[in-house]
Amino acid sequence: MSSDLLGAEAAPVARERRPTPALGAIDLAGFCVDGFLLLDGAVDGELNELALAELRAYPGHKNRMWAASEVIRSVFDVETVRGVLHLLAGTASYDHSSVHLTPAGFPFAQPWHQDSMVEVRPLAFDLLALYFPADTPAEMGPTLVLPGSHLRRVSNRSLARHHSFRGQRLLSCSAGSVAVLHAGLWHCAQPNRTDVDRYMFKLRLRPGPDQANAASSIGQPTAEVLHRFLAGEHPWQGTEAGVDQVGYAALWSYLGGSGDVSPEGYLTRTGLLGRADPTGTARA
């Protein structure tokens, strides 16, 4: 992680040693198809207690806690978490971070949105790592996501007219969970119907130049992996599901996955397999 982006006072997350890959091919396929992975309980209890105490007591600006808290930074240096982030973003650098609080009893949902402005990179993407230090059941307002929406080109709240989708999914999770999201994933925070404040710490990472092929160690797609892609329709997609599936296959190829996992061998028969811009984003 680049210390120049963090500021002099902030220690970088260790990137000197290559982390142990924590994902198998089926997990990578799941990320390509769904746009996220939920590492349930990836951080141990003692660290969660320390982090939650610091979050509750933190007096500063929501975007400054990363630099101020060694405990928070250490969460993202847990071997499993670090390994997943490296596999999906390569030698990543810090973009920004934020403390997210949904107070006890807060009745409002965020509008559906995609973080930041419309994506222009054909396949490269930022990562969002959402850390939940405490058990976050459905009634506490975990993040709501739309699986498979990550490659849709929208701009921040340009999708805010929607209220609900078939297939929307709450990221309910246990303490110490980290949800790793493709930054294009449509999502929104939910109401907190409990009497306990709900905390989440969000870290956004920019990919390194080695994001392309970062997961090349995954190897050939197994029958299970192929099935994950070819059965990778989501209930909200309707007739556009096939086009999204071609994008998921292109993402797999970009990250270093072998073979053509697109429906009907679409990428191969159209000559797009391995192209830097297979879905035409840069040309559009």
Binding site: A57, Y58, L101, T102, F108, Q110, P111, A189
Partner: peptide, 13 residues
């Protein structure tokens, strides 16, 4: 809790 720590579910209006 510092007052700068924003809620993440504020209504649009």
């Amino acid at each position: 809790m510092g007052t700068d720590v924003a809620t993440d579910g504020a209504p649009q209006a």
